[in-house]
């Protein structure tokens, strides 16, 4: 089933995050391509996943081309390696001009530097830290405090 405004979405890395995103986005009707070097990870895709799977190392441009990077509307880099995510995100954004590129970066220092380079990143470490701190600030963490 194709939506009228279906997007062409490439997801690099089919781990917990990548496969979750792929399943959700495919379910609502987008065209999804998942790239992972390990074929086994595709087992995490749900049975109704209707997208494509590309087995290979995404830091090789040949693999990205195989996934038709040129046509992508959205590009997510979700592998467990910051450097892989940052490299492929830069290729997608700067060389193939994909309109929407997001990279997961665990190291907050690295995240900051690449923000300056115009690469949009999500840092799970900072996001989690932010939520923990908010819990403290809102007083929730203090509710059970011993008197």
């Amino acid at each position: 089933m194709k939506m009228k405004n279906s997007l062409y979405i490439i997801i690099v890395g089919c781990g917990r995050l990548g496969s979750y995103l792929a399943n959700q986005l495919s379910r609502v009707g987008h065209s999804v391509v998942v790239i992972d070097a390990d074929e086994q990870t595709f087992n995490d895709l749900s049975p109704d996943f209707s997208g494509f799977r590309v087995v290979g190392d995404a830091t090789r441009i040949a693999i990205l081309k195989e996934a038709k990077l040129k046509q992508a509307d959205v590009f997510f880099a979700t592998t467990h390696w910051d450097n892989v995510n940052l490299m492929v995100a830069q290729i997608a954004r700067k060389l193939f001009h994909v309109p929407h590129v997001l990279a997961r970066v665990f190291d907050p220092h690295r995240e900051e530097i690449y923000k300056q380079l115009g690469i949009e990143t999500i840092c799970p470490t900072s996001v989690a830290a932010e939520m923990f701190l908010m819990a403290v600030a809102s007083g929730k963490a203090g509710e059970g405090k011993k008197q």
């Binding site: 830091t59 450097n83 940052l86 490299m87 492929v88 830069q90 690295r110």
Partner: peptide, 16 residues
Amino acid sequence: PNDQDNLIICQLAAIH
């Protein structure tokens, strides 16, 4: 031996 590392190392060195 990893291209992604070589790229990021050089970008950090040059930019940061």
